[in-house]
């Protein structure tokens, strides 16, 4: 347990700096983009000079960039994410409304790609170079090469428009007043297509990684020893080869969480899922700096937490990890 705690402490200190850099970097990037929130707003409404001045003043955009950054950081220090100009609501509320949808989408997609990917990887890696291995490797490579939005559109056309098995989008049925299990089932039905679109693309990664890892492990001496002991092939595959090839996949899981967040921007748009990714896209288009900063911050925290969990899991899975910290 102490090993995990030490790891946690070191990580938390580092994270604060990472977050600060992320916030300032994003702020400067958005500042460098031409046009501000008022420009984005009047693009859809029009308005005269007086109105534009009034809006700039009301949204605090008549202040210098440095003042705004300082104000933002000061508020952030008090855990206040500020007010969104797009929604005229506290950013905390806007984000909290969308976060569960994104977490659900990402979590399910990660579970799908990791679970199915590693299972198929074991299946393929059980006999490297065999027919099943070839078939799965080519199939997964093809899937990996497909752009996410395209896969999403194909799934919509086949399963929502033609077969009508699943809804074309959204997170749940509109104003259906469903509660409890009914509602959960409804949400699950809505998630099938977006989770598949997002999950299947990353599935290939885990599959190939598992397979490659296993091919490596097969050549190790202890496998030979296990064979010599007369263990069944099944036990060698699952208990020795797959188990040792699993570790890099866990690392990948942490790294992929950031990728998955990026991928969900596209999938959320295609499937009209009201999540963080789509919100981020809207925030950029509207030049809603505080909202985008809020989203990036939450995403960064999310990625840091996931990686931390992965590290802790790693420490438990592999006794060698963290041994140096524990000794220090």
């Amino acid at each position: 347990m102490t090993r995990a705690l030490l790891l946690l402490r070191r990580r938390l200190v580092g994270s604060v700096f990472v977050l600060l850099i992320v916030v300032i970097g994003t702020f400067l990037l958005l500042e460098a983009a031409p046009g501000d929130a008022v420009d984005a707003y009047i693009a859809s409404t029009g308005g005269d000079a007086g109105m534009i001045e009034l809006l700039r003043h009301r949204w605090g955009l008549d202040q210098s960039a440095l003042t705004r950054l300082a104000t933002y950081l000061w508020a952030l220090l008090h855990l206040d994410l500020g007010q969104s100009v797009t929604f005229s609501r506290p950013i905390r509320d806007v984000i909290l409304e969308r976060l569960p949808n994104t977490l659900l989408l990402m979590g399910s997609a990660t579970a799908l790609s990791f679970g199915l990917g590693s299972a198929l990887g074991i299946y393929a890696g059980a006999r490297p170079g065999g027919f099943r291995d070839r078939l799965l490797s080519i199939g997964s490579l093809a899937l990996y090469a497909v752009p996410g939005f395209w896969l999403g559109l194909v799934l919509i056309i086949v399963f929502a428009v033609d077969l009508r098995w699943f809804p074309i989008g959204g997170i749940e049925s509109i104003a259906s007043a469903k509660t409890g299990l009914d509602r959960a089932a409804d949400i699950a039905r809505h998630l099938v297509l977006p989770v598949s679109a997002l999950g299947f693309i990353y599935l290939a990664l885990y599959l190939r990684m598992m397979r490659a890892g296993m091919a490596e492990v097969w050549r190790q001496d202890f496998v030979l020893a296990a064979r010599a002991k007369g263990l069944s092939r099944r036990r060698i595959v699952l208990g020795h080869v797959a188990r040792n090839a699993l570790l890099p996949l866990v690392t990948m899981l942490g790294l992929q969480s950031a990728q998955m967040l990026g991928g969900s921007v596209v999938i959320e748009s295609v499937f009209s899922v009201p999540g963080l990714g789509r919100l981020a896209q809207e925030a950029v288009a509207a030049r809603d700096t505080p909202l985008l900063l809020g989203i990036i911050l939450v995403s960064a925290v999310l990625v840091i937490v996931i990686n931390l969990l992965v590290d802790i899991a790693y420490a438990f899975l592999d006794p060698r990890v963290g041994a140096s910290e524990a000794g220090a």
Partner: peptide, 14 residues
């Protein structure tokens, strides 16, 4: 090619 905000700024302000 710009997005809306950048286009508005480039054409009508700058």
């Amino acid at each position: 090619n710009n997005d809306s905000a950048a286009h508005i700024k480039a054409v009508y302000t700058d």
